[in-house]
Computed example of a mutant assay.
Amino acid sequence: MPVWKIIDISGEPVDLACWQLIFDPVRGGRHLVGLAGDNGDARVTSPITSFEQSSRLAMAQSGQAYRLVGPAGLSRDTAYVLGQFCRSRSLCGDLIRNESHLVENPNVDFGILLAPSRKPPLRFIHLNGLPGAGAAEVGQTLAGAFDGRLLDHRKVLQMSSAIMGSTDASRSAALARSRAVTILHALAHSSSDPIVINDRLLADIDEDEKAIAELAELSLLYDARLLAVTLVAANRQSSERRDSETEVHRPLLSDEIYQRYSVRSVAVDTTGLSTEETAAEVMKHTLANDSGV
């Protein structure tokens, strides 16, 4: 079986005890977490670029070599640094995959497993929901977790309102939509980083449907994976929205509208969830959307 040879190791490898091999499915990359033999401190390595099963030697992206000592495990200290690692990436711990069992599997080709993988597809994550569902905070957390960009439609609308005047809400909304599409074009054209669109629902279902149609068209143009996420919360009118002038209740965009434009949509109930927990739920749906699950 071919192995991924370790070359140009400078200095002595650091022994890692009570170790785990973990995979970050959001940003990609496999890391080792364990207790370092040189000082006993718990650490998470930079991404592993090579591993030799016979010697149990691993090379990290930083250039540091590590030797796995003893069986896989998780101590209190390594659990703590792993938690810190997840928090630094705005990740919920259950998104991290433990792949320690692969180390002892003779059928695993680490040359293939650790080879630089193709970047994930361009992602458009469209967030919407009524005030109180937490879309603004969740959007910021998602953009940080994915190392992506945040397009906050609410801020675009505020700028448009300042230009058009607060009395002309319909023209301000139309200008905001147009500017948001222009910005999205520029972001998608300049980078393959995920784009989180924090949208603002309007009182007009037809206008909201146009926004979904434009996003669907853009996702096809840039070969992006589009996921529409509706954030709902109990006792906050999240299943319907109110037109303040007519006091008419209108439903959120229906599944039929999303299906019309072949857009995958999910609803996430934010009741009782923190911003980080809500973002983790959206991440799970996003990763499933990547794989077509």
Rank of each mutant, 00 (worst) to 15 (best):
G83T: 05
Y66F: 03
D290N: 15
H249T: 13
N98L: 09
R87T: 03
K210R: 13
L142A: 12
T275K: 13
Q84L: 10
L215P: 09
T45W: 09
T49A: 12
A72L: 00
R87H: 08
R30G: 06
K5Y: 03
H101E: 04
L82W: 01
G132Q: 06
R264N: 05
A162N: 05
D152Q: 14
S238T: 02
L187E: 13
E247I: 12
E207I: 11
E277V: 08
C86M: 08
A145F: 07
V229T: 01
D193V: 01
D193Y: 08
Q237H: 04
D290Y: 15
V103D: 05
I163N: 07
E12V: 12
H31M: 08
A176T: 02
T45E: 02
A169I: 08
A145T: 03
S172R: 02
M164P: 01
G139C: 06
G292T: 15
A186P: 11
A216M: 09
A162H: 04
A79Y: 09
D290H: 15
A143L: 15
P116R: 12
S254H: 12
L201A: 00
M283W: 12
E207R: 04
A279H: 00
N235D: 09
P131W: 04
E207H: 07
R43W: 01
S244P: 11
V248P: 00
L215Q: 03
E217Y: 07
H153F: 13
A279W: 09
T275L: 14
S170Q: 12
R149G: 12
T49N: 14
L231C: 07
S55M: 00
T246I: 03
L68Y: 03
S88W: 02
K210V: 14
E209R: 15
G11L: 04
G29I: 13
E247W: 10
A36E: 03
F85G: 00
S55P: 00
C18D: 14
I257W: 08
N128R: 11
E209N: 14
P71Q: 06
T182Q: 14
P2L: 14
H31C: 10
Q158C: 10
R250A: 13
N128P: 03
E247N: 10
V181M: 11
V81R: 05
G272K: 10
V268M: 05
I22N: 03
M59P: 06
I9H: 01
A79W: 07
R97M: 14
R89G: 15
A36H: 03
T246D: 03
D243C: 12
G111F: 08
C86V: 04
A36L: 02
L150G: 13
A186W: 10
A176G: 05
S239C: 11
D77V: 06
V26D: 01
A233F: 06
V26K: 04
L21H: 07
R264W: 04
C92E: 14
A224L: 09
A280Q: 09
L201W: 07
A143N: 07
L273S: 02
F146K: 05
R250E: 12
